[in-house]
Simulated assay, not measured.
Amino acid sequence: MWTRLWVPVLALAVLSHAGPAGPAARAAQSQPVKVGLAVGITGDISVYGDPIRNGFLLAFRQINERGAVRIDPILEDTGGGRDGAINVFQKLIQRDQVAAILGPVLSSQAFGADPLAVQAGVPVVGVSNTAKGIPEIGATVFRVSAPEVLQIPKSVAVAKQVLNLQRVVVLYDNADDFTVSGYRTFAEELQKNGIQVADTITFARGDSDFSAQLTKAKAASPQAIVVSALAREGTLLLIQARNLGITVPFIGGNGFNDTNIITRAGAAAEGLIVGTAWVPSAPTAVNLRFYDAYRDQYKKEPNQFAAQAYAGAQVVAEAVRRAGLTGAEDIGTQRSKIAEALKTIKSIETPLGRIGFTATRDVDQPRTYVAVVRGGRFIELTPPK
């Protein structure tokens, strides 16, 4: 499945606080630049893919309506598997001849598909890949999603202070690259913070009955349960834990950063603690405009993944602007110029706050958050002063 959406218009406002542009960068585009959107909008990761797609399309619509650059976004559904992402990357690179790719949704998909883009010289910007080692895949791989090695330490430290944590049980999905990476970071941080791990229990993506794991976890009498999981399994764990009479808080990885988990788990999600790159209440002008535009367009609240997708679209469009592309260049030139321009982005205002890229092409995001579910929504959690 693929969709091409382009609105040809003029002026630039979404690219706020953009860097200086030379005469070439101010040249009018004769043709739109094609950007591939590799998003899982079917299968078990659609809870992530839907808001990511929405964030991309909202940003590019605004960029095309207001901008001095014109983007032709080509949407492809990867599904939830590694093979689907590989097939989509092959189509975008070879058939559609895109100049850059945004996506895929999962880190496990990125480890499989991103090397194809690196080999072809296509810049890739990950907006939801938080596992360790993503930028190291290759010289054209970037990400705007704060990695779990930065988020988890903060969430563990805050949870320790708020909950006076001394003893936890850890549950993790041992069949996915992202969740295994998250587990390893959690294990390191719990040890650093002197928090005892009473038990470590595994499950696999696709499991539905967690009664055995949760019964074992309950027997260990933890003060909290730490979980590295994707949204589907995470939601089921929350619901089944409460049904078994487990009342202690859950501390989740990035897979829990989705308001759909709150919707589906209901009261079972209350008290869930997560590290997050975005909160709705961040009081910047760009974030408030994004939040209002998203709600107006889609009739629901955005989440972290929508905000990161929007930011990813912003940086790609800014790279096109800085590269001075007209859209008439050969595809190899477009790809190399965008890759080089991405490296120059050090500070751009997005819904995530000011972000840029480090020398290793990872995101530089000075402000991140810890959130807790209270009253059916994520709010910022801060330790007592």
Rank of each mutant, 00 (worst) to 15 (best):
M1H: 14
L5M: 12
P8I: 05
A21F: 06
G22K: 05
Q29L: 08
Q31W: 03
S46A: 15
Y48A: 13
P51G: 10
L57D: 10
A59D: 01
A59N: 06
N64Y: 12
V69F: 09
R70Y: 01
D77F: 05
G79Y: 05
D96R: 13
D96F: 02
Q97D: 11
V98E: 13
V105I: 15
F111V: 11
A113P: 04
L116Y: 11
G121I: 04
G121S: 09
V122E: 07
P123Y: 04
T130D: 01
P135M: 07
V144F: 09
V149N: 14
L150F: 03
I152S: 05
P153A: 09
K154W: 00
A159P: 08
K160S: 13
V162H: 12
L165P: 05
L171R: 01
D173P: 06
D173K: 03
A175L: 11
S181M: 08
T185R: 12
T185S: 01
F186A: 03
Q191G: 03
I195M: 07
I195G: 08
V197H: 00
D199Q: 15
T200H: 00
F203L: 08
A220Q: 15
A224G: 11
R232D: 14
R232S: 15
L244S: 03
P249A: 11
I251V: 12
I251S: 06
N254A: 15
I262S: 11
V274A: 04
G275R: 11
V279N: 06
A282V: 11
L288H: 10
Y291W: 02
Q304M: 15
F305C: 00
A306T: 05
A307V: 01
A307F: 08
A309G: 14
Y310N: 03
E318Y: 03
E318H: 12
R321S: 10
R322D: 01
T326G: 12
G332L: 09
K337H: 10
E340A: 15
E340T: 14
A341P: 06
I345C: 10
L352F: 03
V363E: 00
Q365F: 01
V370Q: 07
V370M: 06
V372M: 02
G376R: 10
E380I: 01
T382D: 01
